[in-house]
């Protein structure tokens, strides 16, 4: 564990807490993509299967349980409790275009051709693009509630913090994880447009609005 990874994980944790807070306080999941949240459930379940057979650390164990549990809870809240506030007509990104290519990439790029390793690779690739339905929805509506933008910013920053962590680990431990690194850089790249608007507008106290 190093400082960058801890910051990344805390940012990830914060993003989920912000998301649940938004749903609970506004009693609504307006502006949120159900598809993106469903993809995160798939990401966490396929990646954290090793919970059942590998012990890394208490920290690792608790965080994995939290990510699986909270993503399932979010999906439940969106699907049942606050269902009427979710508008499927603007959540129209075709997730087949994400899941299919990620599955093919995972079959080609993995550290071992076993079920658990292929699923792990799949989860890494899928995570890198899982935000697309959400960003696509944002693009369509052209604006977002401030709390939703804080959620997206924390979620984007989390993977960005992993980049200095990988550089640090390369120099201190000699560990290189090319699949995670390439996907992580791509994932962070997808947020650049969003970050630009977030830091120039929302952080200055303005509403998140995309230029027409």
């Amino acid at each position: 564990m190093n400082f960058f990874r801890l910051l990344g994980d805390l940012s990830h944790l914060a993003s989920i807490l912000i998301l649940l807070h938004k749903i609970k306080t506004t009693r609504s999941c307006r502006g949120l993509s159900f598809k993106t949240q469903a993809l995160y459930v798939a990401v966490f379940i396929t990646r954290y299967l090793d919970l059942t057979y590998r012990w890394v650390s208490l920290y690792n164990f608790v965080m994995k349980l939290f990510f699986i549990g909270s993503s399932c809870a979010t999906l439940y809240l969106m699907r049942y409790k606050y269902c009427p506030t979710h508008d499927p007509s603007i959540d129209t990104f075709k997730i087949e275009y994400l899941v299919g290519p990620c599955a093919i990439l995972a079959l080609i790029f993995n550290y071992k051709f076993s079920v658990s390793e292929v699923l792990w690779s799949f989860s890494i690739f899928l995570e890198s693009v899982a935000i697309l339905p959400q960003l696509f929805m944002l693009q369509r509506t052209g604006e977002a509630e401030t709390i939703t933008t804080h959620y997206l910013a924390a979620l984007g920053i989390y993977r960005a913090f992993y980049i200095p962590n990988w550089i640090y680990r390369y120099f201190t431990e000699g560990v290189v994880d090319p699949i995670a690194i390439v996907a992580g850089i791509a994932q962070t790249g997808l947020y650049l447009d969003f970050f630009y608007v977030y830091f120039t507008k929302v952080m200055q106290g303005e509403k998140f609005e995309l230029p027409a």
Partner: peptide, 10 residues
């Protein structure tokens, strides 16, 4: 298991 296969990151 190699270090990358151990997947100690989240």
């Amino acid at each position: 298991e190699t270090p990358v296969e151990k997947h100690d990151e989240l």
